[in-house]
Design a protein around this nucleic acid. Sequence first.
DNA 1: TTTGAGACTTAGGTTAGCCTAACACCCTGT
DNA 2: ACAGGGTGTTAGGCTAACCTAAGTCTCAAA
Lengths: 229, 229
Amino acid sequence: MNAAIRSPQPPLTRSVEDYLKSVFHLTSQGGFATTSGIAEMLEIAPPSVSGMMKRLSETGLIEHVPYRGVQLTPQGRRAALQMIRRHRILEVYLTSKLGYDWGDVHVEAERLEHAVSEKLIERMADALGEPRYDPHGAPIPTAAGEIEEAELITLAAAPVGAAVVLRQVGDEDPARLRYLAEQGLTPGTRLTVVERQPFNGPTTVASGNGTRVVGQELAALLWCEEVAA
Amino acid sequence: MNAAIRSPQPPLTRSVEDYLKSVFHLTSQGGFATTSGIAEMLEIAPPSVSGMMKRLSETGLIEHVPYRGVQLTPQGRRAALQMIRRHRILEVYLTSKLGYDWGDVHVEAERLEHAVSEKLIERMADALGEPRYDPHGAPIPTAAGEIEEAELITLAAAPVGAAVVLRQVGDEDPARLRYLAEQGLTPGTRLTVVERQPFNGPTTVASGNGTRVVGQELAALLWCEEVAA
DNA sequence: TTTGAGACTTAGGTTAGCCTAACACCCTGT
DNA sequence: ACAGGGTGTTAGGCTAACCTAAGTCTCAAA
């Protein structure tokens, strides 16, 4: 006799879709998403989040432990992964087919992901040859709702002397992304960690075409896979 | 000291965009759009329309004469044409680049038009070679806000014996559109009006590959240009 | 000239989603 | 053991956009 059972599939609002995505991202390392974390990510006031958390747990999309935080239910996770799939497919499509810069796709996809149909996403995915990663290297969930989980370390944490492949850039800021592209720091690039200054200092890396010094802040956004030298 | 001057460009809501489009379509033959006409087109109750008309005339997008109807101001017309451009470019893109059937594009474009950026639309238009007509033959407004106005007659009104070219299909119903495509009745098709039964009866037309009988209801949706025999 | 059907508006109410202000809870440091 | 800062929630309000019910206006026909 609860709402989740009465209404089988009430379409989610844009707002709800955004909340679910936030919770997914904030809980990707395990644990709970906090009210303030969600509020910050969505740029809204914490009380608005509290209110929405109440509604979402009533509809069975999240599990809310008051004063502790929230987690996605299987149903909420499915919905979140669907949104992330849409977002990432759109990003690939915009860069591959419409000449978008990888710095500009995020904002555009953020609006489109709420408006596209399942059919359109699958047509795009098809036209792109079922891509597995978005332009920033993030894995694209399958239509069935599975997502690859890779063991990556940040460049800031990679040991000196290690050989790594840059796999994913954890940032959306257009200016930073443009800078990284200029520096040749795009997913797939093979790097060797040459040295690192102490006290959170910059990391020096070598690639096919020379060496670069990468500040700590940026290095912490570059997720790498360690490979054999 | 009014709202229209105070706020230079408050982005329009989805709802407002839909109202403006309705008013544009309902006034395309001149005159006023009525409250009930808008209500019917948007599938909402007339009082909701009255309320919105008040708000839109306060913001300077429409001219409202109480109990008479509404017309677009130049500013409202610009906004409406922009939405129509988006809608029609999207329709062309979906059919040309993503294999959509001309019966399925309307619904998809109806949602997307509120989410796409100007930039995306222009990239799509560019990729398509700046198309001038949508898949149903409707003219696409230019980015500057100009739209072609053609003198067309419906097939139901075309004189017997006339040679015509089908230019535009004034309908969005997927099933009807699929039927028309099966019958070869798509924009650009050249037809000769062979005969018409009296009392709003069907019209018989001849084309390159045979003759067809078209009922009055359908014929009234087929907009044609009369050409030299 | 009046009247009444139909179209339009006003009045009042609902829901989603946000806000600020005020209160409640939790946990860490003393 | 408890006090206080920080985080979370509750209370109360607002706007956009819808609704139904109850007037109000218009115009054409009697």
